[in-house]
Nucleic acid binder design. Structure first.
Length: 773
DNA sequence: ATGGAGACCTTTTTT
DNA sequence: AGGTCTCCAT
């Protein structure tokens, strides 16, 4: 296909975005406006114009996006140049560069990437070694602080000097965060390891401190493209800015309305301020939505309108009006799941919709449980994306720890993980002494293990032997690296490490062994089929003969994310995932569940306008995933922390215009499809949904929705008990009548007087505070 | 060293 | 509620 053909398939703004190859360009791509199309066509167009593929740096949000884009470009231009474009996530592209330049920043080529679990584990060890109280020095908090610092390009030394940061930590009762940070970095460095944030941080260091490197990569990457620019953080922003500084051929694509990674340091100002950085920048807006019905587009627009900071744009569509959006309310989370399942059943049955075109979205991973149970019960095939990833499983991490150790002996977390697994008589005490010894001599743990006699580890002779045996075993693996591919190494390690024997010894570990074999399959696939290009360090040209070595496998696995999971098109399964995971995807039928205050928007974000706006953008992303039919659900009660909690409908529901909603649709309740009864849980939605502002004042002003109490079980309900009812407010049980199904309670309500309630239906809540005023 | 009972904590979202 | 971690008994 030639350049003109490529252009003929685009609308005016899309074509402009494709053709503006030189100079700074910002493309604001509304949801469903054909952003991916523009990106792929743009790169294809550039290649057709004769631009050398390895001079193009294209940064995507996930590896999967990069892979798909490469394929599509390849189809467009019909040759192999697409593969030579340097395309991938920030982390994968720059990790590769850091590896080749490792010595310049004090690392070696065999460096390991620590995942979040590794980082946390190291932090736990440090906190323990410093004799700090882990209840005060909460690992998550510390890691967030360190991560935020690195994302803002603060070193541990900068942090130690930063009075604001130290003041904050002091106020949080954790004055030693800075000290932990310093130790953490030192240990990372000793382990020849980087965490995710380090990759971006050290890339900045490389460009900052080594003018030759800056020159090299500015020169290499003559054209820079960034997808999902609204989700870049400061460290990423600076890398791009530096690389593009000499030529200004930078094209960023994004949508400020879809910025949903602020919690991880993404700075929406990067996109809002692009014009300031490049005054000569061209701004192109893609506003026509090709994805969704008018109802969906209108609802999304109406919701996002409530946010303040925005790049003005009007997303519109020529698509048909479509089905109104249904809002379903149900009694409990199980009722909600049943309502969703009912609807899916109906749609599949009556309209023969493929399960594959249906997605259920939620704010938090934990919400998948009730949905999963109900789907299983109804025999609806499904697949959950996200949650505990395959590579986070214990047995997988164990195998990978051996692999990582074989490549990088200094990988301390891996070493600690498997030094006594399978059991070889090196207990915690020994490990502690070894680590203490290493710290004392300013040596690495591996050095001590390799030579316990020299370092005079305070353990007995046989234990020293065991340490050396372990080191020798790892060294025997290392010796094979040069001649074996990833799969051969993996197979060897699984057996020679003793992991296979340990797992087979216990029949209850059958699943784990299966997982290990799945890992071996993945290694085999990698060894046989991987097409990871290898680039020439100096020119950036692609070197054809890729060798699928173990370290390359580990690298590819370290930066895998759930979003990268192989797409199982034609799997005919309903997809379940968080809204974050759904970013960039689209489905004919979408269910957004759990639209409740304190859940969506999340309780953590309700306090601040900024975070609330991010939640709203998240809702916007969720709505705009739907192509044809959108259903939104919420429940009145939900189990949280083991107790039943009352849930108010989300404020976001009020923001959907009634004109886009379906009228009077009855939600399922209780047993779902075949249950007509719903008692106190009887609810409607659509136009009958009363905006919160019109609800009668709550009986108690200090009423906090998340902490009402729990639902009473019938035997607990006795005369004299003070209870709370969702509709009627507070009251006291005055009498119990009848038996079994017919058991009734006479309740004297504060505001409404006496009522008789059938216990079978009434959800009486025992207030947490005992019902005192 | 191993396993079981109980305490305890959790819930944002993820590269 | 359920999973993880800790501590104690074996």
């Amino acid at each position: 296909m030639n350049g003109n053909n490529i252009l003929s398939q685009l609308n005016d703004s899309q074509r402009a975005a494709v053709q503006e190859v030189a100079g700074p360009v910002m493309v604001i791509a509304g949801a469903g406006s054909g952003k991916t199309r523009v990106l792929t066509y743009r790169i294809a167009y550039m290649l057709e114009q004769g631009i050398v593929p390895w001079r193009i740096l294209a940064l995507t949000f996930t590896n999967k996006a990069a892979r798909e884009m490469t394929e599509r470009i390849q189809k467009l231009i019909g040759d192999g140049r697409a593969k030579a474009v340097q395309m991938g996530t920030f982390h994968s592209v720059f990790l590769r560069i850091l590896r080749t330049e490792a010595e310049k920043i004090g690392f070696s080529r065999s460096l390991t990437v620590y995942d979040t679990d590794d980082s946390k584990s190291l932090l736990r060890n440090i906190i323990k070694e410093m004799n700090l109280d882990p209840k005060i020095y909460v690992v998550n908090f510390i890691l967030n602080r360190i991560s935020a610092a690195k994302s803002n390009l603060l070193s541990d030394e900068d942090y130690a000097r930063n009075t604001e940061a130290k003041q904050y930590d002091k106020e949080c009762g954790k004055p030693l965060v800075s000290e932990i940070f310093t130790r953490y970095n030192k240990r990372m460095h000793n382990a020849n390891a980087m965490d995710f944030d380090d990759i971006l941080y050290y890339m900045n260091v490389l460009l900052r401190d080594h003018p030759d490197m800056l020159f090299k990569y500015q020169n290499r990457f003559q054209y820079v493209l960034v997808d999902e620019y609204q989700d870049t953080n400061f460290a990423q922003y600076m890398i791009i800015k530096k690389i593009a500084a000499s030529h200004h051929n930078i094209c960023v694509v994004g949508d400020d309305a879809q910025s949903i990674y602020g919690f991880r340091g993404a700075d929406i100002n990067n996109i809002l301020n692009f014009k300031r950085d490049y005054p000569e920048a061209k701004l192109i807006k893609l506003e026509q939505n090709y994805r969704s019905t008018q109802n969906i587009v209108n609802a999304a627009n109406a919701v996002i309108k409530n946010n303040n900071k925005q790049i003005p744009k009007k997303v519109w569509t020529e698509n048909e009006e479509g089905t109104p959006i249904s809002v379903l309310q149900s009694g409990t989370e199980n009722d909600e799941a049943a309502a969703v399942c009912d609807s899916i059943f109906e749609v599949e049955h009556n309209y023969h919709v493929d399960y594959n075109d249906i997605a259920i979205l939620y704010r938090t991973n934990m919400q998948s449980r009730a949905l999963e149970e109900m789907l299983m019960k109804r025999h609806i095939p499904y697949r959950i994306y996200g949650g505990v990833s395959f590579y986070a499983r214990k047995e997988i991490k164990d195998v990978l720890a051996y692999c990582r150790l074989a490549v990088n002996h200094y990988d301390e977390e891996s070493l600690r993980r498997v030094i006594n697994y399978p059991l070889r008589g090196i207990g915690d005490t020994t490990v502690e002494r070894v680590v203490a010894c290493a710290n004392e001599h300013n040596a690495r743990v591996w050095d001590v293990i390799e030579n316990p006699v020299f370092f005079e580890v305070p353990v007995n002779g046989p234990t020293k032997e065991k340490l050396m045996d372990f080191a020798n075993k790892i060294k025997s693996f290392t010796a094979l690296l040069a001649t074996k591919d990833a799969y051969e190494m993996g197979k060897h390690i699984v057996f020679a490490s003793g992991i296979a024997a340990a797992l087979k010894a216990d029949p209850s570990d059958k699943d784990r062994m299966d997982n290990v074999e799945e890992l071996l399959d993945a290694m085999k696939d990698f060894s046989e089929n991987a097409e990871e290009p290898t680039f020439n360090d100096d020119t950036g040209e692609v070197i054809e003969n890729f060798t699928p070595t173990l370290d390359r496998f580990l690298e590819s696995v370290a930066l895998l994310t759930d979003a990268d999971e192989k797409d199982s098109e034609e799997e005919h399964k309903v997809k379940l995932m968080t809204i974050h995971a759904a970013k960039g995807l689209e489905f004919d039928y979408v269910y957004i569940t759990g639209l409740e205050e304190n859940l969506f928007p999340s309780a953590m974000s309700i306090g601040s306008r900024r975070e609330l706006e991010e939640e709203r953008r998240l809702f916007y992303v969720a709505i705009t995933r739907a192509k044809k039919v959108l259903t939104i659900t919420h429940a009145q009660t939900r189990y949280r922390f083991g107790s039943m909690q009352f849930c108010e409908p989300s404020r976001f529901l009020d923001e959907i215009p009634l004109s886009c909603q379906k009228t009077l649709r009855k939600a399922s309740s209780g047993k779902g499809l075949f249950s007509g009864k719903s008692g106190a849980g009887e609810v409607y939605s659509g136009k009958t949904f009363v905006p919160k502002s019109k609800l009668p004042a709550k009986p108690k002003p200090d009423f906090s929705a998340s902490s009402v109490g729990r639902i009473a079980t019938p035997p607990e309900i006795v005369p004299g008990l003070r209870i709370y009812h969702l509709k009627f407010g507070y009251g006291t049980v005055s009498k119990i009548d009848g038996t079994g199904e017919d058991r009734k309670a006479v309740v004297n309500f504060e505001t409404l007087g006496e009522k008789v309630l059938l216990l079978k239906f009434a959800k009486l809540i025992i207030p947490k505070d005992g019902g005192k005023k």
